[in-house]
């Protein structure tokens, strides 16, 4: 098991290394981030040269990559185009994103399991059909459409109707927050509501479909039939024998889906104006900010790798029949 994890990690590091080269070359070839500055006749030439030197723009490509890599190994992700420290910026944005993603993922898992189990137990009945159709419609809705619709047609009308702000449509927190952490908690809770609902609705649907089919599969399994035949109560069969086995695939899928959730978070952050990692990355892409882009991809790729590994390990834990050499 341990050797397996190490091996997987090593492979991932190599993959990650190549991914950074790929991104670096792509970005470096995308254009000069200081072109606008350079074209402005009112900015002294010395200013432009100094900025270029700061970003190593005049160095050869491989040298620039080496500068980045040797810094990255020591946790120094360089500076953004405007001279900000990328590593510390990334951390503050990551915190914002995780606040939304973790809350949403945890809730979505519970919703998915509940919906999936309910649909499986009621297989073929109205409840099943209603849940399944809802899931499919949600799957077919791009996340930005869902976010916009919730904002424009649900949140704002409700706020207007009640003449007070129930749903915050922009930003991750109120600007005037002051006082202790505890007194700020309600405000922390208010802002994520809408983006979290969006992420939950988008994420849960596919998981619920898994959960349902894996439940149905397990309900048919021999040991479950046996348990039923022994006369165990429906409830006991469901929880002791079915759910436990049916949870394995869905848990794994959630872990594996993390990359997609992070992708969805980019859009959610844009729709709801959260200054998270995705929004930051997008700014970086549009301003040709190499270090920002690399930092984002490094962070998300690390998460994806860790979660994939977690999925593998979860397999082993949830299904004792699997052993790792």
């Amino acid at each position: 098991m341990f050797a397996y994890v190490i091996r997987r990690l090593l492979i991932s590091v190599v993959v990650l290394f190549f991914a950074t080269i790929f991104v670096f070359v792509l970005v470096a070839k995308s254009g000069n981030p200081l072109a606008l500055l350079n074209a402005n006749p009112h900015i002294p030439h010395a200013t432009v040269v100094a900025r270029e030197n700061l970003l190593h723009l005049n160095d050869p490509l491989w040298q620039r990559y080496w500068i980045w890599l040797s810094g990255a190994i020591h946790g120094n992700l360089g500076t953004s185009i405007n001279g900000q420290d990328v590593a510390s910026e990334a951390m503050s944005h990551l915190f914002v994103t995780l606040r939304m993603v973790i809350v949403a993922t945890v809730i979505a898992i519970f919703v998915a399991i509940f919906m999936g189990v309910l649909a499986a137990v009621r297989q073929g009945k109205v409840t099943d059909h209603a849940i399944t159709v809802t899931n499919f419609v949600l799957l077919a809705t791009p996340i930005f459409v869902l976010g916009l619709a919730l904002k424009e047609f649900v949140a704002i009308p409700i706020n207007q109707h009640l003449n007070t702000t129930i749903f915050y449509t922009d930003g991750e927190q109120s600007p005037t927050l002051s006082g202790s952490f505890l007194s700020r908690l309600p405000a922390y809770a208010e802002h994520p509501a809408l983006p979290a609902i969006t992420l939950i609705l988008i994420s849960y649907a596919s998981w619920a479909i898994y959960q349902r089919s894996s439940m149905i599969e397990t309900l048919d399994a021999d040991h479950v039939r046996l348990a039923r035949a022994k006369g165990l109560s429906q409830r006991r069969v469901l929880f002791r024998h079915v759910l436990r086995n049916a949870l394995i695939p869905v848990t794994t899928v959630v872990a594996l889906d993390f990359a997609a959730v992070l992708g969805g978070a980019i859009i959610t952050e844009i729709v709801f104006g959260w200054q998270g990692l995705g929004q930051w990355y997008l700014n970086g892409v549009l301003t040709l900010d190499t270090n920002v882009m690399l930092a984002y991809l490094l962070i998300t790729a690390t998460f994806v790798i860790l979660f994939n590994l977690l999925a593998d390990i979860l397999y082993g834990v949830l299904d004792p029949r699997i052993r790792y050499a």
Partner: peptide, 10 residues
């Protein structure tokens, strides 16, 4: 793997 390790949308 290289393609899968990065969020597609990003």
């Amino acid at each position: 793997d290289l393609v899968l390790v990065l969020p597609v949308l990003a």
